[in-house]
Write a protein that binds this DNA or RNA. Structure first.
Length: 512
RNA sequence: GGCUGGGUAGCUCAGCUGGUUAGAGCACGGCACUCAUAAUGCCGGGGUCGUGGGUUCGAGUCCCACCCCAGCUACCA
């Protein structure tokens, strides 16, 4: 709530286009969307990037299995991701696909820039090992049982040599240690930072960055000694999307770069806090300001797996109680700095207790009384104890949401629900239905109803990032004359609903 | 195997540098109220704080051992 038009460029991981969007993808995108919307309400100039990672052997294989071209295949997948994010209310500003021409151009430019600025960072080396034709991958020892690949036990492994380009990651060990230790906000939560420091203690290895058999990829732009053109391996193909999305190498890329925040899952922490900063440093480009590592949503206590049938149809899940309830549940139930679990039992508990009974009913009873006792017109009234106590909880809300202590979105919601509980207590203590019976109490009645309407109007604003649909619904029911999305947090304290014409309408969260 | 974090009410969790009768939300029981989506408010039952030792006037909170769970231990992304 400080500097007004600060630019805030945030990204999610780009999802791998070998299957449909699932709960894990949705969790991350919804979390990022909440942060993006939160920053818009602060008045920041937000640019929210998400997208799809469309290259690689698995995609090519999946396309071949369905007898379509890789491009056709990823086009279909991209359509399904876009439709899903539409459904989830993900307010991205840009959707990048690694098969876009602009992305490929940017990747080539980045590689060439490193080649020119840090020529010793790319070098060729021959790698040899057991190669599984089924997987089209070199297998590590722990993946080999009885001399066969565990995934393709009927095929023989071939001892194969391959000459690839490598990136001299080892050169950046001290740079990375300094980055991670001296900039406490760069990598969080702390547990994830410690893991990466442990990795650095253990010592880095250079990483291979090309593959000879990889055809569905960006051709690596530097010629190999054998004259063969190899495919660019995932690190240099996918990670640069955050940079290429800004238009890099066009000079205007600095308008947006460096990113303020990369939101990634714990499985790709290493790529974002070790490999990616080293690549940028090698290229002499600015490093992103922060990486936030979230955990996973489990389903009924297990990780989803197609084979075990542990999965959740996202659109069915949203059909059941609506998108906003779905977003609320995920953000409230799963701590954004750790793992959590999705179960319908918990969902129903929270839907009833938090949404229908606590918030929905508070709105319902308040609006009904404004209609009944105030002729549907919000009266004017002075600041009350309810306004005062809200202010304290909203300090906690911002502390959880604005990144100063990380992105503890679940705690942001917890703080808002503390105000909601207090709202219901306030109604019972004031008992407007009693005040309404005594004309001498008119002023007290008006003050109570005015306070409750301000209280609800504030909920619309602070909950808009989480439940944009329901927040707008209540905002409309309160009769607010201006658009909800134009509201700013710094106006919260002075928000006054006097004169608004309320219309109760249907309940926000009907009981089923 | 190594490293890190954790095991506290039926469920999900909070308990900072050790100190009065161990807390919250949900679920459960009783009472009140009637504005409201049979919603809300108030009160209450419920825990040998993973196990066994130890330090201390005093330990959920420190030390040791053990058991269990999760994460990390780099080229699928």
């Amino acid at each position: 709530m400080t500097d007004g038009s600060r630019s805030f460029y945030l990204t999610t991981a780009i999802d791998y286009a070998n299957g449909d969007p699932h709960l894990g993808h949705a969790f991350e995108k919804i979390g990022a969307d909440v942060i993006a919307r939160y920053h818009r309400l602060r008045g920041d100039d937000v640019h929210f990037l998400t997208g799809l990672d469309e290259h690689g052997q698995k995609v090519a294989q999946a396309a071949a299995d369905r007898d379509v071209s890789p491009q056709q295949f990823v086009d279909e997948i991209a359509g399904r991701f876009l439709a899903m994010w539409e459904r989830c209310g993900i307010s991205y500003d840009q959707f990048i696909r690694t098969t876009n021409a602009e992305h490929k151009r940017g990747v080539v430019a980045l590689i060439q820039r490193i080649h020119e600025r840090s020529p010793e960072d790319f070098y060729e080396r021959t790698y040899e090992g057991w190669y599984c034709v089924g997987c089209e991958l070199f297998k590590r020892e722990n993946e080999i049982v009885d001399g066969k690949c565990v995934i393709h036990p009927t095929r023989e492994l071939a001892w194969t040599q391959e000459r690839n380009y490598f990136f001299r990651l080892t050169r950046y060990a001290e740079f990375l240690r300094t980055l991670i230790t001296e900039h406490a906000q760069f990598l969080r939560p702390e547990s994830r930072r410690n893991e990466m420091l442990a990795l650095l203690d253990q010592g880095l290895e250079d990483i291979s960055i090309t593959r000879s058999r990889l055809t569905w990829a960006i051709p690596f732009p530097i010629a190999s000694s054998s004259g063969e053109t190899q495919g660019t391996w995932v690190w240099f193909d996918a990670l640069p999307n955050y940079l290429t999305a800004t238009g890099y190498p066009d000079a205007s890329f600095t308008d947006r770069w460096p990113a303020q925040l990369h939101i990634v899952g714990k499985d790709i922490n290493r790529l974002h806090s070790i490999v990616w900063p080293a690549m940028l440093e090698s290229a002499g480009l600015p490093i992103p300001r922060a990486v936030w590592v979230h955990g996973f949503v489990q389903l009924g206590g297990e990780r989803f797996s197609k084979s075990a049938g542990v999965k959740l149809e996202l659109s069915e899940a949203m059909d059941r109680y609506g998108v906003d309830a779905f977003r609320y549940f995920l953000m409230r139930e799963v701590p954004f700095d750790g793992d959590g679990n999705f179960s319908w039992e918990r969902f129903e508990e929270r839907y009833n207790a938090d949404l229908a009974n606590a918030w929905g009913n508070l709105a319902s009873r308040s609006l009904a009384m404004v209609e009944k006792y105030c002729d549907a017109r919000v009266p004017a009234g002075p600041r009350t104890s309810l306004d005062d106590s809200d202010a304290i909880d909203y300090d906690a809300y911002h502390a959880a949401m604005d990144g100063r202590n990380g992105y503890l979105l679940h705690e942001g919601l917890k703080a808002v629900w503390a105000t909601i509980a207090r709202g219901n207590e306030y109604v019972d203590r004031q008992a407007p239905w009693k005040l309404a019976k005594d004309p001498a109490q008119r002023e007290a009645l008006d003050a109570t109803m005015a306070a409750l309407c301000r209280h609800l109007a504030r909920h619309c604003i602070v909950l808009f990032p989480f439940m944009p649909g329901k927040a707008a619904e209540l905002w409309a029911a309160l009769g607010a004359p201006m658009p909800l999305a134009d509201q700013r947090f710094d106006q919260l304290a002075s928000l006054d609903c006097a004169g608004w014409k309320v219309s109760k309408g249907a309940g926000l969260f009907p009981k089923t």
